[in-house]
Write a protein that binds this DNA or RNA. Structure first.
Lengths: 118, 118
DNA sequence: CAGAATCCGTTACGATACTG
DNA sequence: CAGTATCGTAACGGATTCTG
């Protein structure tokens, strides 16, 4: 009996798609770090490379291009020699900062929890 | 000149590791959904399967085992026939809810932004 | 400096079939 | 019901080399 799924658990369908929607951008090891390190202002390619642990040029380039395509970051070429390229968050990109903030907070709790159980 | 990276951008090193730390758990297409759907209370295996879009049994099982190993969810076997297994968030697991909430909010903004640009 | 190109390993995920 | 086993695909990511 009760082969059917229990429903109505006091929480209305909060459009779970929005989760996946946003996670698709946040996903991967580096995309969130890129946004995080751009939150204080524009940053150049190699600066980001050094900011973010040990990300390879290839992957960083891929992520940046992807984020640019999604309207999360902008790419501005400075006509200098040698060439310099600045990346910055768009207004949409800024929206991610609070979420990443919350994630970082959880990260700290994780560390704290691990220290206790040792 | 200025071969060196620009530093001191008004933001102190906020331990970026915490980000990666937490993302390692959140990562993937399904882990966040699992936590999200458990936030209102315990849920059985097949219930989760139906809650979460079209996740395969294999992957769901993998994620659940992983989350259990990390202390994010608990697994309780009810001695009934047929057997029933309940998954629930631990106290640590509850910590993720606010972060996921923030992520969902961003997801909605993404949708809104996309509607405008069409 | 800012990348593109190439090669290659690892992992997430899906589909199907099978078990206790 | 709650999984496990097996197979196969694709995306992610690292290392190295090369270019405008």
């Amino acid at each position: 009996m009760s082969l059917k799924v229990r429903k109505n658990r006091s929480i209305p369908p909060p459009e779970p798609c929005a989760l996946t929607e946003c996670m698709a951008i946040i996903a991967g090891a580096w995309a969130p770090n890129v946004i995080w390190h751009l939150r204080a202002g524009p940053r150049r390619f190699n600066e980001l490379r050094l900011d973010i642990p040990p990300v390879s040029a290839k992957v960083l380039s891929q992520r940046l291009k992807e984020l640019e395509g999604r309207g999360v970051v902008t790419r501005t070429i400075q006509p200098t020699t040698p060439p310099s390229v600045e990346y910055a968050l768009t207004r949409l990109g800024q929206e991610f900062v609070p979420a990443l903030d919350a994630i970082v907070k959880v990260g700290h709790k994780l560390k704290a929890a691990r220290r206790k159980e040792l």
